[in-house]
Design a protein around this nucleic acid. Structure first.
Lengths: 203, 203
DNA sequence: TCGCCACTAGACCGACCGGTCTACTAATGG
DNA sequence: CCATTAGTAGACCGGTCGGTCTAGTGGCGA
C-alpha cells in the first residue's frame, strides 16, 4: 500500500458512503455514479478499488459485520449483565439506533442485512451466503446467551440453537414491521417479548 | 369496459406476470419491457392499463392482498379449529407454499409484502402505507384468534393487539431468515414457536 | 353503416445504468 | 534521479431504463 494514512482514504470514503446509501435506500436504487459524487471520487478511482458494484456490496457487508462484531453487539452480549437482561439491552440498543436515523432522516432504515437479504437472496447466491453467515454469527451470540441462562438456572432447559434462531428471526421481523410503519417505537413495544420465545428440546 | 371476458384479459395477464416477477426477484430488478414480453403485450397496451410501473406495483399489492384475504389466510383463520391450532395451520400453509416455489424454482421467494416493504418503504410512502395496511389486516386476523383463545380460556389474558403484532413480526422474520438460508424447512422448525409469544397487558 | 373509442402495435425518447479505457499525476524504492 | 506503479481523472461505451407518441384496428352502439 502506498497510502498508509487511512483517515480520508478514498476506499474508506467510498465504503462509508455506500454503506449509508445502501442502508437508507436499496442496492438497486443506488448508482455507482451517485456513490462517486457523494464520496468525491471519480469512476476511475472507484474501479481501481472495487472490481464491480457487487463486490462493493460484499465489502460493505463485511465492513458492517465487522463493526457489529466489535461494536454494540459485542457490547450487548459480553456485558456483565445477567444473560436474559442482555436481551433487553440489545433491544434497547436497536431501538435507539433506529430512532436516531428516523429522527435524522425522517424514516427508519431498518437492518442493512435484512434489507439486503430480502432484496438480493434470490439474485445472488454469494451475497446470500455472506448475509447468511452474518446471521449465523448473530444467532451464535443469542445461543451463547441462552446457554448461559440455562446453566445459571435463569431459564428452564430448552433447544438453545433453535430458540436463538427464533429470537434472531423475531428481531428482524420486528424491525421489518417497524420500518413498514416507519415507527421505531414499535421496537420498544414488541421487542421485550423476545424473551418469551421458546423452542423445547426435541426428544 | 368493452372486453367483459376476463380469462385472458390483457390487464389480468400483466398483473399475474408482474406478481410472479416482483415476488421472485424485486421491484427494481424487473423491467416493464420484461413484463410485457412475458405477458405477450406491447408497451402501448401496458401503459393503457397502468399509468406507471409504480401503479402496477400498487395494483399487484392490492391484487395479492385480495387473494390472501379470500384465500389461505381466510382458510387458516376462519377454520373450525380451536384458535391456537389455527396458528399451526397457518404456519403449515406458509411452509408448504414456500416449499412449493423452492422446489419449483430452486429458491425461496419469501413474502411478497415483506420483500416489497423492505425494498420500498424508504422510497415510496404511498406503497409503504399500502403494505402497512396489508400488515394491519393480517394482525387483525391474529388478534381475533387471540381474543377467541382468551375468551374460551385456552390462553391466559394478555395484550392481544401487541401480541398479534408480535406474531406477525415473528412470521415475517422467520420467512426472512428462511429465505436467506434458502431453506423452507426453517419455517417448520421455528414456526410453531409463534404460540409461545406473549405480551402482557399493561397496567 | 358509420363513427366512436377501447385497445394494440411498436418506433422512439432522453436519461442513466454498470463498466472500460487511455492519459495523466505523483510518490516511492532502487 | 529515474523507473515503476498506485491512484486519479473523466471521456466514452453499448445497453437498458421508464415513459411517450402516433398510427392503426376492430367491435359495438346508434
Amino acid at each position: 500500500m502506498k497510502r498508509m494514512n487511512a483517515e480520508t482514504d478514498t476506499r474508506t470514503r467510498i465504503l462509508a458512503v455506500a454503506r449509508e446509501m445502501f442502508h437508507g435506500r436499496s442496492y438497486a436504487d443506488v448508482g455507482i455514479q451517485e456513490i462517486c459524487e457523494a464520496a468525491r471520487v471519480q469512476k476511475g478511482s472507484f474501479y481501481h478499488f472495487f472490481p464491480s458494484k457487487r463486490d462493493l456490496a460484499l465489502a460493505v457487508i463485511d465492513d458492517m459485520a465487522g463493526d457489529w462484531a466489535h461494536g454494540f453487539v459485542a457490547e450487548a452480549f459480553d456485558l456483565n449483565l445477567p444473560p436474559m437482561e442482555r436481551l433487553d439491552y440489545m433491544i434497547d440498543a436497536a431501538y435507539y439506533w433506529q430512532k436516531a436515523s428516523a429522527d435524522l432522516e425522517g424514516r427508519m432504515r431498518g437492518c442493512l442485512f435484512g434489507n439486503l437479504a430480502l432484496e438480493m437472496s434470490t439474485r445472488d447466491d454469494v451475497m446470500r451466503a455472506r448475509l447468511n453467515a452474518v446471521f449465523d454469527k448473530a444467532r451464535d451470540k443469542f445461543q451463547a446467551t441462552l446457554d448461559e441462562a440455562v446453566r445459571t438456572g435463569a431459564l428452564a432447559a430448552l433447544n438453545t440453537e433453535a430458540t436463538a434462531s427464533a429470537m434472531l428471526a423475531y428481531l428482524e421481523g420486528v424491525i421489518l414491521l417497524a420500518k413498514t410503519r416507519n415507527d421505531p417505537e414499535l421496537i420498544q413495544v414488541l421487542g421485550p417479548a423476545i424473551k418469551t420465545l421458546r423452542i423445547e428440546m426435541s426428544h
